[in-house]
Design a protein around this nucleic acid. Sequence first.
DNA 1: ATCGGGAGATGGGACATGGGATGTTCCTAC
DNA 2: GTAGGAACATCCCATGTCCCATCTCCCGAT
Lengths: 232, 232
Amino acid sequence: MARRMMSDEVQGHIRELILTRRLAPGDPLPTESELMSLFEVSRNSVREALKALQAVNVVDIRHGFGTYVGSLSLDSFVDGMVFRAAVRHRRGEASLAELLEVREALEAGLIGSVAGDIPDADLGRLRELIGAMEREADETGRVSAETDRAFHLALYRSLGNHLLSEVLDAFWAAFHRVREELREERQDERVTLARHQAIVAALEAGDTAGAVTAMRDHFAGIRQVLRRSARD
Amino acid sequence: MARRMMSDEVQGHIRELILTRRLAPGDPLPTESELMSLFEVSRNSVREALKALQAVNVVDIRHGFGTYVGSLSLDSFVDGMVFRAAVRHRRGEASLAELLEVREALEAGLIGSVAGDIPDADLGRLRELIGAMEREADETGRVSAETDRAFHLALYRSLGNHLLSEVLDAFWAAFHRVREELREERQDERVTLARHQAIVAALEAGDTAGAVTAMRDHFAGIRQVLRRSARD
DNA sequence: ATCGGGAGATGGGACATGGGATGTTCCTAC
DNA sequence: GTAGGAACATCCCATGTCCCATCTCCCGAT
């Protein structure tokens, strides 16, 4: 029966409500007091349910304004993975390496799908980003994280898969946040730059197999740096 | 500098507490009243924080018993994706196809990593599962979901990457749950079986490229069924 | 006519308290 | 020795009250 913890029940009702009313992210939800009388529960239960839903980006609570349908983004998933990695790291597991391996699997699989018929517009954008990386490396000695992120997103834009882009971006963000927290070393920027260039070069040549190995090399380089700093 | 919103602040404190005390999943957390006096906040704020953390599997609340460190599993992530897919589906997006594409990218990338040096033990397990599928197909006309799931997990067991297995399994679960909800058609079981056999055959032969294309064929088959039923 | 600021309405945030529901533990009764 | 049940710890739900954030709208100063 549905009688199993009020707040969970309310959570379900709110989810249903979003579905049956065909609400989209950003649409307003009933106020807390409306939800109270709608489901005939106390304000506490409503608030606990909303808090839980907010934690997974299903609703967006704006103080003094109202509650809205959330973005349904994967941000909370990133938080979860970062925390999880932190916990596991303290128990001696190579959580950062595991994250990297997931990224490698994804991108190695994807690059094979895009190579061959990547639009010129995307190639142009990639060349642009390579240029930006060169400039940044010259000026500040580092490639900015955002440029790297944009590069890895631009690669797969032609697939037109929204979910895929978000998943990729989520793992990218998780990896970088964990690496920051662990204060791991970063690869020499010139090497990174060269790897990126190799990927674009293979794409331009329409060389699918070459693109895949270039991508694998890219990740192999990062992995090696991780292993080296793990030995210290 | 107190963050905004008590419950968020408490959430952070609890996370810190788990990290600094080096707690593992299953370890007990302070009771609600202890947390109240520990952080000097009301019971409501503590409960809202716990509810939010429970929603992402960071804590596990057991009625009448206590609260514990959660499993940190990706279950909530699966729920999130299923809900997200449901919302997007109603807005005309091919959310199921997107999920499948993510799975394909992952597995196509991974199969390339394992092929070549997959342990005999894993190969044996894979053959066993194929046998189970044949039996099921004969007896009930369908391959059970669990066997399929086990197959896709066994493929990458040799990588020894716990996170990877969970991510893979999460997307597997999300895909199947969404497909159930949408009442999509399923592929002919004999075809599925043949695809699985082809993958194992390529692995046994040590044929990396063959394994990758077998995997891609497998997903191409599923994709085709989805497209066909979308045309109806 | 326009711009700016302040009052009120709306709506979420926090707290305190009381009673209940549900597990666990342990002791008693047989 | 074992089954039943009371006592306890702990989480669950409700109510009431006040605080604070954000928006709207109107009014006065320019």
